[in-house]
Design a protein around this nucleic acid. Sequence first.
RNA 1: GUCUCCAUCGUCUAGAGGCCUAGGACACCGGGUUCUCAUCCCGGCAACAUGGGUUCGAAUCCCAUUGGAGAUGCCA
Length: 483
Amino acid sequence: MSEVRTRFAPSPTGFMHVGNLRTALYAWLLARSASGKFILRIEDTDQARYVENAVDVIYATLKSAGLEHDEGPDKDGGVGPYIQSERKGLYRQYAEQLVASGAAYYCFCDKNDEAADENAVHDAAEPCPGHCGELDAAVAAERVKNGEPHVIRQRIPRDGVSVFNDTVFGEITIENKVLDDQILLKRDGMPTYNFANVVDDHLMGITHVVRGSEYLSSTPKYNLLYQAFNWEIPQYVHLPLIMGRDAEGNVSKLSKRHGSVSFENLVTEGYLPEAIVNYIALLGWSPKSDREIFTLKELAEAFNVAGLNKSPAVFDYDKLKWMNSEYIKALPFEEFASKALPFTTVADSPLADSWEKIAALLHSRVETFADCQEKIAFLLEQPEYGVELFNHKKSKSTPENSAEDLPLIRERLAALEEWNAAAISDVLSKFAEETGVKAGRPMWQARIAVSGCAVTPGGPGEIMEILGKQVSLARIDAALSKF
RNA sequence: GUCUCCAUCGUCUAGAGGCCUAGGACACCGGGUUCUCAUCCCGGCAACAUGGGUUCGAAUCCCAUUGGAGAUGCCA
């Protein structure tokens, strides 16, 4: 029994789509759960799409997600290079081999002939306008020798059917005649994704090909290639697609128009990498239990291809948010405080020293770190508000009684020597007791006066402690001037 | 157009012939706790696409219909 080897083969586009990340996750999980190897290969065969530093984004994402690779451009495992552009010569050699055996042929048609009619439906029976497949091999070889621009196309049989077995979708049968003579080697000498994949997967000893189900219908073309080379066909694990819902309510493959779909975007929006990974693990796979929160390690232990689903899964931001909030709440306080700080402007404010107290207010109240700033903005600067905010039915607070009570409360507060939440609450409670009202009333009155918000994280004591005596009293004075 | 795949609450899913008057989670709606809010606790709403079979019995098997998605690139 040979060792399981899976690979993740992203193209360096500069950002990591969560769908790609999920593919990487499952490939990693499959390798780890079988004590196999996880290989990273960079698919940069499209020169036009080259993006600076894109490979670094891939490394950073994998690292941040915890998906460590065993082999890759930076970790030689003996089957490199792991970057396709550095393997360029190899592909030509293999493509020529196919031409020699008749499984492929040179095509001299102009790119533009085909591109002219962009939306034209491709007719598999007529792969190129020039019928290059029918050209005499010797004549074609001569033209190539003379430097005529060309591509190499795969010669697909016009009859028969291709049958293959997919780990999740089962047996798939496709008639060969609907397969087109796909291009293997481009005019620039670079291989196409499909061809490079087959060559590299074989050369790198990949045993399980984990990829999205959008490749299901082109898999026979891959297999025909493997057969032409007389190579062993790997085991396919096609994953259900991740879908997004647009404004009209239609679903389609998750893309930018559906919202933030890249890992790094999600992170900058305040999601924890662990939460993102946990969430996408459950998109298309089920542990077959009611459990939902898993660490990466636990996922590796629980992972089983039997739990892979066939139907597409809609990416649900609400559920991601919920999961993120679970992860945030589970964070040790110190860690929460240090991770949340950069999402606020507190560090550059007079309240910087009170950050821990502020963070304590936030910890159980945010779903993403991005929620932080908005929730504590009133501490940094009190918003404009009207006296009607003093109305609160339950505590029987009104602008009128607030105008009466607040000066008295202010007086007691001003006399306070120990300025902390407990002492402040105590003043408020005592005041209520002495005037014969429920504690809720002065609490509400005071909180509105110092915050200017109907809803705040924390109560009047906590808010005033953070604000400090001077600012708190000043805010009460400001409130008083409104009556 | 053609080919392929898919089909359980709004969403993610459990369910592999009787354990299903279909379970869990998110969202939503109530209630409780709380100095507002949040946390936390309790409860509720809500689905087997349709039609035929097969079977003593079907969400589970088969067929058709309908619906959805993907593929059909010198993109990956």
